[in-house]
Simulated scan of single mutants.
Amino acid sequence: MARPTVHDRAVVIRSYDFGEADRVIVLLTRNHGLVRGVAKGVRRAKSRFGSRLQPFVDLDVMLYPGRSLFTITQADTVGYFGAAIIDDYERYAAACAVLETAERLAQAGNDEDPFFYHAIVAALEKLQTGDPNQIVDAFILQALTHSGWAPSLFDCAQCGKPGPHHAFHPAVGGAVCHLCRPPGAAEVDPETLHHLWLIAHGHASSPTPSQAAEAHRLTRAHLQWHVERKVTALYVMDQ
């Protein structure tokens, strides 16, 4: 019995060449999670929709299920965010970090969970004009919270003692008091943790440059501790 064609919204996470003229496109869809689909013939000059299957595009796609990969039979542009991103190094690196983070965290998620699709589109919209580091940090914190790995940013992650606290360690869950502080914990400005709490909950924040830099380091460390893999785009951002 033939399986039904899938109609969904999606963003491209990454792609790689397949065969002589095809390309495998990794999509983060609204209703089917991460999907790997073959776009046939898109490397040819006369491809029908190859130019649309790029990062930073909100797509309406038709997918035909195969044995191990979907086949992408249609792709229409709903929203294009690349104009303000591609030619700006900081925004481009930040947008890539959003996509790579989503792929790492969505792998273990619910296939029918639309959170990551909507969060990516929202982040790409904000990257048109907003501060790249702060947008990425907010995206990571909200994605970690959705995945059950939110860092504690006020109460001690070990004993629950109310903050503010001056130490942070990803292995124990975030902020820690002086009694629970493990070896190797980072000394942090409590206002940095307050800034992270604000952006994690969708509020505006105006950190100092040193607080913003410290917040980015803590967010990156907490993410990579839990995904146990290097998120390459986050290091590109810091170059």
Rank of each mutant, 00 (worst) to 15 (best):
I85E: 01
E187P: 09
A233G: 03
Y117A: 02
P162W: 15
A171V: 02
I72T: 07
R220C: 09
A122V: 11
I120D: 01
F168I: 13
S15N: 04
V11G: 00
S47N: 08
M1G: 12
L193I: 14
C177G: 08
V98S: 03
R181L: 12
W149R: 06
G202V: 04
V236T: 06
E103Y: 09
T208M: 13
H165V: 09
H226E: 09
L34F: 00
A185K: 13
R229M: 04
E191H: 15
T232M: 10
A150K: 04
R44P: 00
H194S: 06
L223R: 01
P209E: 15
P55A: 12
T71S: 11
L193D: 06
D17A: 08
I25Y: 00
A157I: 14
D76F: 06
G148T: 06
D8L: 04
K161W: 13
Q142P: 01
Q239W: 13
E103A: 13
S68V: 04
L179T: 08
D87N: 09
A143R: 09
D113H: 00
L53A: 07
H118Y: 13
E228S: 08
W197A: 03
L69T: 00
G184I: 14
I85Y: 01
I140L: 04
Y89Q: 05
P132I: 11
L196E: 12
P114V: 07
T71Q: 03
D60W: 11
T29I: 04
